[in-house]
């Protein structure tokens, strides 16, 4: 392991490793701006239809699994904390702690996905809230309700895809961290942290859009 703990060479187009790191940072910000507009397009559609069909959206939201969604919210927030901690440790000698933190982050992500899967299961097999295929048209304001559920599936589905990619990345990075790849050069972990935090933040937004309308808390 000792031999891999030396700082890597920068790629040919960079003057130094620091240069490479700063460049990657701009890259991730540009990437996140793309992501925001991607979700933003759907948020816009959500906002317009919620404005047009307030009752249907409120009715739809009442059938979401508030408890699971909220537990998941806290799980992701915690994972962001462990991720941030990992970023702090990247670039230091704390190889073992870094690996553990990354593994905890990935585990929290996996728990989130598991709970989400359970929620999906209940949505489909118990409440039949799957638009188009088995949606109960007897619900109040069924069309708007269905639209709400369509957006629910698309938004949470895309979020789950992002999170799964994130878990995969975190696990890969954890493996490398264990081999000592980030002792001299911690930037990749920082970049990963941006992504993870972004996915977490998206859930915060989704949580307010999906679980809150129509509920009196």
């Amino acid at each position: 392991m000792a031999e891999t703990s030396s700082a890597p060479e920068p790629e040919i187009q960079y003057a130094s490793l620091a240069h490479q790191g700063e460049t990657a940072e701009i890259g991730i910000w540009a990437f996140l701006s793309t992501e925001i507009l991607f979700f933003g397009g759907m948020f816009l559609v959500y906002a317009l239809y919620r404005q047009a069909f307030p009752i249907g959206f409120a009715e739809g939201s009442k059938d979401t699994k508030f408890i699971i969604g909220t537990v998941n919210l806290f799980i992701l927030l915690t994972s962001s904390f462990t991720m941030a901690w990992a970023v702090e440790l990247a670039g230091t000698e704390a190889r073992r702690a870094l690996t553990v933190l990354l593994l905890v982050t990935a585990a929290l992500g996996l728990i989130f996905i598991g709970l989400k899967g359970f929620e999906y299961y209940e949505d489909v097999w118990i409440d039949h809230d799957f638009p188009g295929i088995i949606f109960p048209m007897s619900k109040p304001d069924a069309r708007a309700n269905e639209l709400f559920w369509l957006l629910y599936w698309m938004l949470t589905g895309l979020h789950a895809v992002h999170l799964s990619i994130g878990v995969g990345l975190v696990l890969t990075f954890a493996h490398r961290a264990w081999r000592g790849a980030y002792i001299r050069y911690g930037k990749p972990i920082e970049i990963l942290g941006y992504y993870w935090t972004f996915v977490d933040l998206m859930w915060v937004v989704l949580w307010t859009l999906i679980y809150l309308p129509g509920r009196n808390i």
């Binding site: 793309t34 991607f38 979700f39 397009g41 759907m42 188009g132 069309r143 708007a144 639209l147």
Partner: peptide, 28 residues
């Protein structure tokens, strides 16, 4: 990305027959 989101919604609505943009099913 905005185009991507739009086309995705178009494809999903055609696949599931739900009205995101189809007025017959409540869309615009």
């Amino acid at each position: 990305p905005v185009l991507a989101a739009t086309l995705l919604m178009s494809a999903v609505q055609r696949f599931l027959h739900v009205g995101v943009f189809d007025p017959a099913l409540g869309g615009d």
